[in-house]
């Protein structure tokens, strides 16, 4: 499990450095795959029949399959595949990520001292914060969707670490939520590129009354 978490954190760090849209989606796929594997391992441990593997399967289907596919088809239609912010921004977000790792461990040790799944909870917090930081620091809509899915992954990991398997109906609810959110976002991004000829969300500021 620890190796998996180290890999996850590495992927998240990588995520903060990628400026190309396609690569970002690939990175997101890798991240979701690691989450799915983690789910699978938790399912192995709990061992309560076939539906302990359901979360892993759902993660694979939605977060590795459907969502990246939708994003890829969207990226194909866009002309400009590069994030607009500079490399300094990438450095800042990596630094923020590093800061979040420290902060998360400190918070966990303060709030839940002696918890068994300390590393999982800490990494999930890192995921949530980094996802938010991605949304704040990137201006392309696709990158922000990637950030949103990262946040979602973090929350999911957190739930898994704390409860060791949520009720099936809640799992399904969460997945449907994310799926619909991403679908809506993809449609909106398409509209954005149609109306403004770009997917830079900064142009939305013009809409303010």
């Amino acid at each position: 499990m620890e190796q998996l978490l180290i890999l996850l954190l590495a992927v998240v760090f990588l995520q903060t450095r990628i400026m190309n849209l396609k690569n970002a989606i690939v990175c997101l796929m890798a991240q979701s795959t690691i989450i799915a594997v983690a789910c699978f391992m938790v399912g192995m441990e709990s061992n309560i029949g076939w539906h302990s593997f359901l979360p892993a399967i759902l993660t694979m289907v939605f977060k590795v399959g459907v969502i990246p596919y939708a994003l890829f088809t969207l990226v194909k239609k866009l002309t400009n595949e590069q994030e607009l912010e500079s490399n300094i921004n990438a450095n800042y977000s990596t630094a923020a990520s590093a800061f979040f790792v420290v902060l998360s461990y400190m918070l966990i040790d303060k709030m839940l001292p002696g918890i068994g799944s300390r590393d999982i909870v800490a990494s999930s917090l890192v995921l949530i914060m980094t996802g938010l930081a991605l949304i704040v620091m990137r201006s392309r809509a696709i990158m922000q969707i990637v950030g949103l899915v990262t946040v979602e992954n973090g929350i999911y990991l957190f739930g898994m670490a704390i409860t060791e398997g949520l009720p099936i109906i809640i799992e399904l609810g969460i997945f449907l939520d994310v799926l619909i959110a991403v679908v809506v976002l993809v449609i909106l991004t398409k509209r954005l590129s149609l109306s403004f000829m770009t997917t830079d969300t900064n142009v939305l500021q013009k809409l303010k009354g």
Binding site: L103, V136, L204
Partner: peptide, 16 residues
Amino acid sequence: TGSVRLYVGYVMVAMI
């Protein structure tokens, strides 16, 4: 300011 990113930033700061 109307910047969506800034709003998310507020959420993040509040959460932290």
